[in-house]
Amino acid sequence: MSSIRNDHEVARDLATEAGQQLLRLRARHGFDEPEVLRTLGDRTSHEFLFSALGRLRPSDAVLSEEGIDDKARLGARRVWIIDPLDGTREFAEAGRTDWAVHVALWENGDLVAGAVALPAQGSTLSTVDPPWLPDERPADQRLRITASRTRPPDFVQRLATQLGAEIVPMGSAGAKICAVLLGIADIYVHAGGQYEWDNAAPVAVARAAGLHVSRIDGGIPTYNGVDPSLPDILVCRPELSGTLLASIRDVTDRDGTGPHVGG
């Protein structure tokens, strides 16, 4: 891998290659021991990405879900934020395609590049060539909200009821945000607790594609924080953001939970 590629290409190529390694691991190991497969998947992808970034961008820091959080990153100008295997549960289930690899770059206070590989779907969405967002969605189409297939939050159910929206169950956060990018869903909203690596890469791609991205109180999500937790996120088509933020405020005000809703 050439070290002269730009950061967008590095993110795309590393996410794609890590995904290919995960597919090969799946094929070799099979699904009879899901816990073992999950552990192998996390470790294999992390070791590849960490090593490749150390070779290609040796001066940059790395924040990985599977690595030790070296607080030296807080003084770094550039930090790669990676989730080597997002949707570990789905990865270890035969036939599931809703898992992903996330690679994002934070530089001088903001996300500047990112890629989300969807290996079992045969695609990588990245800031190299962000997905094209249709100008309009069909006016008569019911809104679709992506939510966890195993732990759908009560908050999202209440929001869907208020909006008359359909809930589309799905695995990883990356797959959910990519579903919005690809027009499979209109909204991804989460308020049950995440970390920066869960959404940095898909947020970078979503922003590049022109989607609205914010916290559920309308604030701007920030990265490379002392505490890498990022409890909530909203990703949607820009024309829906005002209605959604108002509905979120209404739902949280009525149940008394405030802006950071558990579930």
Rank of each mutant, 00 (worst) to 15 (best):
I248L: 03
D253T: 14
Q121K: 12
D140C: 00
L133N: 07
L125P: 00
A209E: 03
S123Q: 15
P238G: 09
P34E: 08
P169M: 00
L240K: 04
R96S: 12
G218C: 07
M1D: 02
S45M: 06
L111R: 01
M1Y: 07
G95N: 02
V79E: 04
R149T: 11
N224P: 02
A72F: 08
A208Q: 11
A209I: 03
G262W: 08
I216W: 02
L125Y: 04
E9Q: 15
L133R: 15
K71T: 14
S59K: 13
Y223H: 04
D135H: 11
A201H: 10
E90C: 03
D250M: 11
T161C: 05
G122C: 05
F50G: 04
A27M: 11
A185E: 07
L159V: 10
I82R: 01
G19E: 13
G263P: 11
Q162N: 05
T16S: 15
S123T: 15
P34D: 03
V116A: 02
K71C: 00
R249W: 04
G174R: 09
A206V: 03
P34C: 04
T222F: 00
P169F: 08
R26S: 15
Q157M: 09
N6T: 11
A18I: 00
D154N: 10
L49A: 10
A61R: 13
A113L: 05
P221F: 00
E65S: 02
E66M: 11
P58S: 12
V189H: 00
E107W: 02
